[in-house]
Design a protein around this nucleic acid. Structure first.
Lengths: 189, 189
DNA sequence: CGTCGATGTTGACAATGCCCACATGCCTCC
DNA sequence: GGAGGCATGTGGGCATTGTCAACATCGACG
């Protein structure tokens, strides 16, 4: 809470966490491309080299941010799913998913598009995979689950950068689309 | 065709096009994030500042690349659609779409994820919008078209970065998912 | 034939990612 | 309880980058 702990005890103690928070703020402001390690360090009030004690590389920082994002997404999905099970859960899951993407556009973009390759960061890959679990549980059939994942992810991305021209944008339509898919999923064994 | 016009006539003549081609090669190799204007210039055999006579900014170069990508995508879709019309065109369209994304992963990523914001580059925005046209014609109902767009785009992205774990990846599944969606689209009024 | 504008070139500057050597201070082990 | 070790943080430095400014070159047009 203290805006400036006067006597920086040289060893910060929570630098890693502070760096991540500062980085996320800058991510929100500038996007992943313009996020600079040195500016993160400045924001955290440490030397330009301090981050290297916690992240071997700029990309590692971004990967950590994205990993955290996937954990939060998974939590949001579980929270949004509520009591629903099976195909009926698709709509609330989709809604929670889209809300997450809409609330954290820069982070979402980092997680799926802008960010480091998952193959280079095992923890990231695993977190990303884990976020898929709620959907896989709701729709036991693989094809249906993948389709739903793709549909919702595609909607999120198209909405995010206004790819869908403004006249037909909006969460309402998105939800209708998901609803329709859910209905079909139910009847298509 | 000439690999090196010996006497570079100072005024290159086709620099813009050459720069774009060099840039796309580097894009393929390194991704948009690591693409450096100076390296593009080097690859084109001109000074590090020559590109600025054609692109006011690095981002502008990327936007031009992405714009071209959308034009090519639109062409690929029209070519892939063949004679099919209406909902029946969905499967061939989806196939063409996925093939494009699979053949040009870096470019695809630039177009949708990595690249400049469409709102900052009108030509880009328009090309992106135009690429949507074939789909909109095939599925006259807005919701269905948006859903299909999202579904296919989502599949492309998930496939691209192996988000769908390897065990269920592959174009075959993707096509099945699209086929199912197409079937549902046909029966949903 | 001269000049003018588009296109390229050279030079410079600040910022950045990352490397190296050094400083600091807590923790452990005799 | 003192000495050494190790994680953490600092400062300086280097190559690279995007962009700006000044100058060079050349074809077109009077």
């Amino acid at each position: 809470m203290s805006t400036s702990t006067r006597d920086q005890p040289y060893h910060h103690g929570e630098l890693r966490q502070v760096l991540l928070e500062a980085a996320e703020a800058l991510l929100r402001r500038d996007g992943a491309g313009r996020l600079s390690l040195r500016e993160v360090a400045r924001a955290a009030g440490v030397s330009h080299n301090a981050p290297y004690r916690h992240f071997p590389t700029r990309e590692t920082l971004l990967a950590a941010l994205a990993t955290d994002g996937f954990r939060r997404l998974a939590a949001a999905l579980r929270a949004g799913q509520g009591a629903a099970h099976g195909p009926a859960a698709l709509v609330p899951l989709g809604r929670a998913y889209l809300r997450f993407a809409d609330s954290n556009p820069a982070l979402y973009r980092l997680m799926f598009s802008d960010g480091p390759r998952k193959s280079d960061h095992p923890a990231l890959a695993e977190a990303a995979h884990a976020a898929f679990a709620p959907l896989a549980e709701a729709l036991p059939e693989r094809g249906a689950a993948v389709g739903a994942w793709a549909l919702v992810h595609g909607l999120a991305e198209l909405l995010r950068d206004g790819q869908i021209s403004a006249d037909l944008m909006g969460p309402a339509l998105a939800e209708a689309v998901i609803g329709r898919y859910a209905g079909q999923g139910r009847q298509a064994r």
